[in-house]
Structures are given as structure tokens and as C-alpha cells.
């Protein structure tokens, strides 16, 4: 390790295709769970906004879920989903995403001003039409804020999956550590940061397009 430089550039040049493959695998493992989490959070959040009594216990459960160490959850799933499969990593990541997205969905729906709701009803919107045309668009800034946090955390957490054999770019950490060779580790950290940044840019752009009126989005407390 003494004369080993932090980065050997030729290694990166020789392994571009390999790194690209890991990057693609990582993106799928980390981001598909966020998408599924969002699809689950919308109906659940709607139910919680309508029936506040449902929200307290669900929020408490997801608070605990969010605190569960990822490695432990991956390990507990192995007997059911198998070692080194995508499902072992993606199922827990879906729940982590849901734990972030459910509160933001509920906050977003609750933040729709009552006069706006009443105006929509007065203009003849039924409950479903009002939901699709008024309430969901109005909560887009909240949803995007939640998805940004969920996506970034998911991208960073997915690398832990390497310890159970499927972590996309996380494999570079194991590889570099076992060979006392820092180049793959540095490449992995940089690529994960780049993936997180790129995802964030896409989401911010999406918010600009979907909700151009939202100057500033709401902060998410996680």
C-alpha cells in the first residue's frame, strides 16, 4: 500500500466496459425500488390523508423500518430470496423508499389549501377528477422532494448489497479491499456520487416541468 497511488488511471481505462455494466446494474438495483415505492406511496398516502387514524400507526411502523440496518435486513431475506440475487437487495430498498415517501405524500396532500379544494368542487370536479387534476399536481413539489431523498439514499445503500453478493458498484469496494488496491474503491465512490447527482438533476428538471409554479420545494426531514 505504501507506493500504491490512490488512483491508477490505466486500470480505469482498461475497465470502462466493466464499470459501465456495474453502473447500469447499480442504477436498476437502486432506482427501480424507488419507483415501486412511489407507486405504493401514492395510494397509501391517499388513504392516510383521508383517514388520519390510519396514518399514526403506519408512520410509526415505517419510522422503525427506516431505522433497520440494511445489511441486517438483506441477510434476513437471504433464505427466502437467495444469495446474490437482485431481489434480496431490492425488496428492502423498496421499503426504505416507502418509509421516506409515505410521509412526504401525506404532507403534500395535506398542504393543498382548503379553498383550492373547495373551488375545485364548486367548479364541478368529482372526487377522482379533483384528485388527478388538482390535488396531485399541487403536491408535486413535496413528492419530488421526497423522491430526491429516497433516490439518493437508495443509490448509496445499494452498495451495501455487495456484502451479500449483489451491490452493483459496491462490488468495487470489496474487490479493491481484498486486493489492497484503492483504484476500484475510488472509482466506485465517484461513480455512485455521479449517479446520485445525475438522478438529482433529472428529478429537479422533472419538477420544473411538472410544477413550474413551485419556486422552492419543501424540505424533507430525514
Amino acid at each position: 500500500m505504501d507506493d500504491e497511488p490512490l488512483v491508477r488511471w490505466y486500470w480505469i481505462g482498461d475497465h470502462l466496459g466493466y464499470l459501465g455494466g456495474l453502473l447500469a446494474d447499480h442504477a436498476v438495483i437502486a432506482l427501480v425500488p424507488v419507483l415501486i415505492g412511489l407507486l405504493l406511496a401514492l395510494p397509501l398516502g391517499l388513504a392516510c390523508a383521508r383517514f388520519p387514524r390510519l396514518y399514526q400507526p403506519l408512520a410509526a411502523v415505517f419510522n422503525i423500518v427506516y431505522a433497520l440496518p440494511s445489511l441486517a435486513v438483506f441477510v434476513v431475506l437471504i433464505p427466502y430470496t437467495g444469495l446474490a440475487t437482485r431481489a434480496t437487495v431490492m425488496i428492502p430498498l423498496t421499503f426504505y423508499a416507502l418509509a421516506v415517501l409515505l410521509p412526504t405524500t401525506v404532507d403534500g396532500l395535506r398542504a393543498v389549501p382548503e379553498p383550492v379544494r373547495q373551488a375545485a368542487t364548486a367548479m364541478g370536479y368529482g372526487p377522482w377528477h379533483r384528485l388527478a387534476a388538482v390535488e396531485l399536481p399541487a403536491s408535486v413539489p413535496y413528492l419530488v422532494a421526497g423522491v430526491r431523498v429516497a433516490a439518493v439514499s437508495s443509490i448509496s445503500l445499494a452498495s451495501v448489497g455487495a456484502l451479500v453478493g449483489r451491490g452493483g458498484l459496491g462490488y468495487l469496494f470489496i474487490d479493491g479491499f481484498q486486493r489492497t488496491f484503492p483504484t476500484p474503491i475510488v472509482a466506485g465512490i465517484v461513480l455512485i456520487a455521479v449517479l446520485a447527482l445525475a438522478t438529482d438533476v433529472v428529478l429537479v428538471t422533472a419538477r420544473r416541468l411538472l410544477a413550474p409554479w413551485a419556486v422552492r420545494e419543501k424540505a424533507v426531514t430525514r
Binding site: 443509490i155 448509496s156 459496491g170 470489496i174 465512490i189 456520487a193 446520485a196
Partner: peptide, 11 residues
């Protein structure tokens, strides 16, 4: 938040 802890620890 984007920093992978496993990468930081191994490095």
C-alpha cells in the same frame, strides 16, 4: 447522503 459508507470504510 450520496456517500457510500462501505466505500468510505474500505478506502
Amino acid at each position: 447522503r450520496a456517500l457510500p459508507t462501505l466505500g468510505l470504510v474500505t478506502l
